[in-house]
Design a protein around this nucleic acid. Structure first.
Lengths: 241, 241
DNA sequence: GACCAAGTTTGCGCAAGCGCAATGTTCTGA
DNA sequence: TCAGAACATTGCGCTTGCGCAAACTTGGTC
């Protein structure tokens, strides 16, 4: 689905949006001003594709608020979620890794706000803004490591270990402390979780129901709270005899 | 296992080793001379770890000759092969993606020769040599794409599809045309193939035996030749009804 | 408040493919 | 040339987890 070219929705973006983010943290206020003046800002509904796999990479993005799932779709229409991107991260910077098109589809998991810039500005930003490039490639390195972890997990772990591991990863990366546990800080269905763990929504449902009976998790529609992370860790790390 | 620091094994390396490789293709002879003068060259036996996961990333490497498997080992000792690296590619450049340690283990699949440089030279190379950085990040982008393909395959395909797909990828990337087909250009066991495809050596053996009976492949110890790539493609792309 | 779509639950049969075992073959090194 | 290790083959029972089905629950919209 093609979005209309994004346009400014705020009169002027404040520099404080960027100062604490690693790619921008070494810049002076007037540099941030210049960067923001060239940005488009846009709000996206949950479930929207910010950019799509194989589309020409015309813009790069900074997720200001919300969560995004990085997804590939197979020829038979199955969706596989490789990564989640939290607020504060750059994404869609295909040019940085020598590509002309986006390598995957970025779908919002929540209502989200993102800034974007035309891809032709990438090289300028990389050349002129101290730390911008270095921090971006750190992000690439982190994502490469995470996807490699995914390969290892899917190749070697049984399904309940994978689901437990995914829940732990989610609460670690995007969890919100609540009185009796840690809640995943965005809506997530059994289908969503199954797309991250190479299984089906029914298998995820059976596992979550069993774990709920044991008091390890608590869930409602699109809401999962982990009450006993150690028990899940024990499952995900168990060695099959 | 720690190798002794590598040392020069040839009097002087010839510039022609580099001129056709993308990271070095825009450089002048004297620049190549400078680069080679700072390189260590080393020959590795098959099955040797050039560098290991989580070891401090002290050197970066260029594979001059041979093939290398990029491997992760699980806590239970299972090996998972994420990628193969052919001759001509840079590897182990952890600094480029903001890391202090190697993200995986690089194991030679064949007798191999590699050049290496101390990691402290990375930034100099990136800053001073035109195209070096750009081409390196293109390699990163390609590898990211390939690993993402792995996640999708392992998540969604049945085992015979994955093995067929892996064989096609191997002959496409490292195949050598022979009279009646395409042979994988390095020794590869059923165990090796199973580590690439999230299965076991027995399952791979059964599949290869069945395909050999049908005239699709021909194999001996550590040698696999594909006689009918189209038949394998049909298997790997089959849609389950 | 009602309706309906989306999401969740649960049962059960079955298929995919693994584990285990045993045997056979081939290549390397002494 | 021989021994032994590494690699390959094959059978078969069993486990894992999926497919299919059906029903239930919940939340959003009108």
């Amino acid at each position: 689905m093609n979005d209309l070219p994004t346009r400014k929705t705020l009169p002027q973006l404040d520099e404080s949006l960027l100062t604490h983010l690693p790619p921008f943290s070494k810049l002076e206020r007037r540099q941030l001003r210049t960067i923001l003046d060239q940005a488009s800002s846009r709000r996206y509904e949950p479930g929207t594709a910010i950019f799509e796999e194989d589309a020409p990479a015309e813009r790069f993005y900074l997720l200001l608020d919300g969560y995004v799932r990085v997804v590939r779709v197979t020829p038979t229409g199955e969706q596989v979620t490789a990564l989640h991107i939290p607020a504060g991260q750059l994404m869609g910077f295909a040019k940085a890794i020598g590509r002309q098109t986006y390598p995957a589809t970025a779908i919002t998991a929540t209502e989200s706000i993102a800034l974007s810039w035309p891809m032709r500005l990438w090289e300028t930003f990389a050349a002129e803004y101290e730390g911008f490039s270095t921090e971006t490639y750190k992000t690439v390195g982190t994502r490469l490591g995470e996807i490699n972890n995914r390969v290892v997990e899917i190749s070697t772990l049984q399904v309940e270990q994978r689901v437990a591991s995914a829940l732990l990863r989610l609460i670690h990366q995007t969890g919100r402390k609540v009185p009796d546990g840690i809640e995943i800080d965005f809506p997530i269905t059994r289908q969503d979780l199954s797309e991250m763990t190479a299984t089906t929504l029914h298998t995820v449902s059976r596992l979550l129901s069993a774990w709920e009976k044991k008091g390890m998790v608590e869930s409602r529609r699109k809401r999962i709270k982990v009450l006993d992370p150690r028990a899940l860790a024990a499952i995900s790390e168990a060695r099959i005899e």
